[in-house]
Design a protein around this nucleic acid. Sequence first.
RNA 1: GGGGGGUUAGCUCAGUUGGUUAGAGCAGAGGACUCAUAAUCCUUUUGUCGCGGGUUCAAGUCCCGCACCCCCUACCA
Length: 537
Amino acid sequence: MASRPSYYLTTAITYPNGEPHIGHAYEYISADVMARFKRLDGFDVRFLTGTDEHGQKVQQTAEREGLTPYELATRNAQAIKRVDDEVLGISYDRFIRTTDKDHYRASQSIWQRMLDAGDIYLDKYSGWYSVRDERFFADDETEVREDGARYAVETGTPVTWTEEESYFFRLSAYQEKLLELYRTQPEFAAPASRFNEVIRFVEGGLEDLSISRTTFDWGVPVPKELTAGDTDLNHVMYVWVDALTNYLTGAGFPETDSEEFTKRWPADLHIIGKDISRFHCIFWPAFLMSAGLELPKRVMIHGFLHNAGEKMSKSVGNVVAPAAWTETYGLDTVRFFLLREFPYGQDGSYTHEAVVGRKNSDLANNLGNLAQRSLSMIVKNCEGAIPEPGELHPEDNKILEQAESLLSISRDAYQGQQFHRALERTWYVLGEANAYFADQAPWKLKKTDETRMRTVLYVTAEVLRKVSLLIQAVMPTSATKLLDALGVEAGGDAGATNASNTGPRSLAAFGDSLTPGSPISKPEPIFPRHEEPQDAS
RNA sequence: GGGGGGUUAGCUCAGUUGGUUAGAGCAGAGGACUCAUAAUCCUUUUGUCGCGGGUUCAAGUCCCGCACCCCCUACCA
């Protein structure tokens, strides 16, 4: 049996310092949809997500709460994993934690490789440090006030000149190589506007990067045998070295000769938020070049969600928990809304009215009602089974061809993570199908031409089958119900695992057709209209 | 300060290398139909294309200026 092509994708790993909100859910859901689509399309998918658990903040928070850093990280990682599992239906293959044993090995291995390449050296990191902000400021970010003391302009906190021993990565040596990468692989990062920001940044020159810390110890230790002779201090890796390396760990690194690593690396897709584009588009490829490893094929940078145009923030009190949304609208509606409403890569603004609009208009009316009316007629007028179609008329072929075209349109759109485009085109065809149904008026044909009625009902159901196959990735539960209602033989798991690679519900079956005679039950509405909760009084 | 992007119907946005009457979805209005989840179909109103100049036979689409908005300008993640 021929092996199926690999598709390895990742989300960013989450810093577990709070409850995940709808913005996190946006990233997980979009990656999940991508993973499911690829599985349904026959790829041997590996989908990695997880938590980034090291760093000073976790250590300090743990101390405040009287826990060890690992205990705190475990508690918060479990909370995030629970949202993935129980709220969002995320089909990851591994939930990686940067505290996992194999990840320590991977991080120390990439460090060794960068060291061997001559790109790591010991020096002093110095700058204006604000204790209150826990961060350094550049010279021009500080000002000397009338009292003679120096303050950070941005935050107004006092800063002191601080020097700290640190290992550095020779990032400056990679400016040209990175620009060459950007020139030769214009699809390396998207959307173009974000990618251009990265390119301009690199063109402006790169400084070497401090990649270790000695002021706290909650991190992957730089192996003592690698620091012997340099220093007596204990160095832990700067969190980004460790965090980015999770993508390698998830592929089996450092076992570079293993079957797993050979198959999975380089990654096909990193999905990230716009706040960390620099780390993924500049530092990460530079680290990999230094370590002599292949570069990921694509970094897709998604935008942020805003609540009615307002940035979500705790102080404003407009942060939405994923569970609050899925309880109010239903998981599949939330998944559909997030991918249909906003061009992926741009920021998006949501309102209750917008979600309800999509739910009612696109799901309940255009899709749900079309299924309900056509399946109802089949049950009542075709002996409860998919009818045998008669000769196809030009109108039948036209709508069938439009549905047929959705596979290549969707594949192209997904290839560039243009989820909204795939859905937009799919709903355009559903609009055409509704027009076709009204135009053919099978309820009239029932009295005049039963063969023709059966043909129209068959064609409509077949369009629905094709659409259902494609939207399994976005709305796995609802699409499964719809395929059940259409009498499509069970198979796969709506893209949740590689069991969906083949079978009557995989995209390999897209070009097939409904089997006349398949029994159909009296349909139940699959996409109900939104009901506002009644005031309990 | 420097760099980049935006400003098109009530709302959200499309508008290729400048070329006949500027488009879509939603919302609004009218009509049709009754298979269906008060769903669906058809028809339809509104636009100084931010403002002011310029180039051109011809500009939303190029050039200059102005106004407003947004993003980026490295080591908390």
